[in-house]
Amino acid sequence: MFDWLTEFFFPKQVSTFASDIDNLFYFIFYSSLVLFLIVVIGMVYLSIKYRARKDEPLRLTSSKDHSNLLESLFFIIPLILVSITFVWGIRSYLKMVIVPDDAIEIKVTGVSWFWTFDYPDGGQTLNELVVPSNTPVKLVLSSKDVLHSFFIPVMRSKMDCLPNRYNVMWFDATKEGVYDIFCTEYCGTGHSAMGAQVIVMKPAQYEEWASELGADDDSIPLDELGARLYTQKACNTCHTEDGSALVGPSFLQTSQMYEQERVFDDGTSSVIDDNYVRSSILEPQTQIVAGYQGVMPTYQGLLNDRELDALIAYIKSLDGDSQI
């Protein structure tokens, strides 16, 4: 329809069914607007026309309290409108649930509070869903802990992620670009930070990217790799680089306290060293820093040894200035 209007009401239309859903919206919107104007104009007109004038004596008023014609109209016109809406809603919905056979399948897992994506040819990304354009993509969703819901506004699509169960959604992206993903089922403290991005690439570019996915990052220095993992693996959802506390302690603080004692919530303490950082990533529930809640999920299986080393190197590098 009108582009400016679409941009006003909705985010961009990126999936194949987005325009259909937007048009359904406009249909309901304009018919509701008409009904709404009838209500408001009727209300204002009647209340002003029949207002009690000053000093007007009280009188017996009309005993008219029904009109078969009007009542039938009030019944039939909305009935027609909602019937169209219902059928349209269902037809569009069926398009959204019937997954094309040639769709590539990506497994989406919600974990408090990040998303992991497993690709058909192996390899995994965190908080970055990469898909080819003009290709149907089927997402198989589940959750590792509580309920989450996977929402891509530009695709007009959303599905809940349940533990021990799989839900399915699909889309066919029509425009390349980088778009937002939100978690829309409340899942605790980090709910509003549980965002991700979907990156739509040209199919050829995607092929290239997918084949590189499994490859090692050996060429990059450890602390640079760590800095990249810091955002890629969603550490930044809960840990800052600047010393301020979010859900978890800041990495800067950890860095500054290297080789010093840290106190845990059960009263014990331990010296911060490489082993401590490693076990905090892999078994986050065993030692919880005093003043914080033990809400971090384990990264067992999500990081290989080099990546763990990279994160340790990166955390140590944060305090670089003060070490001199």
Binding site: F17, D20, I21, L24, F25, I28, F29, S32, L81, V82, T85, F86, W88, G89, I90, R91, S92, Y93, K95, M96, R156, S157, K158
Partner: peptide, 10 residues
């Protein structure tokens, strides 16, 4: 009415 239409409610 908008929310009752399944496709739009998604």
């Amino acid at each position: 009415i908008f929310l009752g239409a399944v496709a739009l409610d998604i």
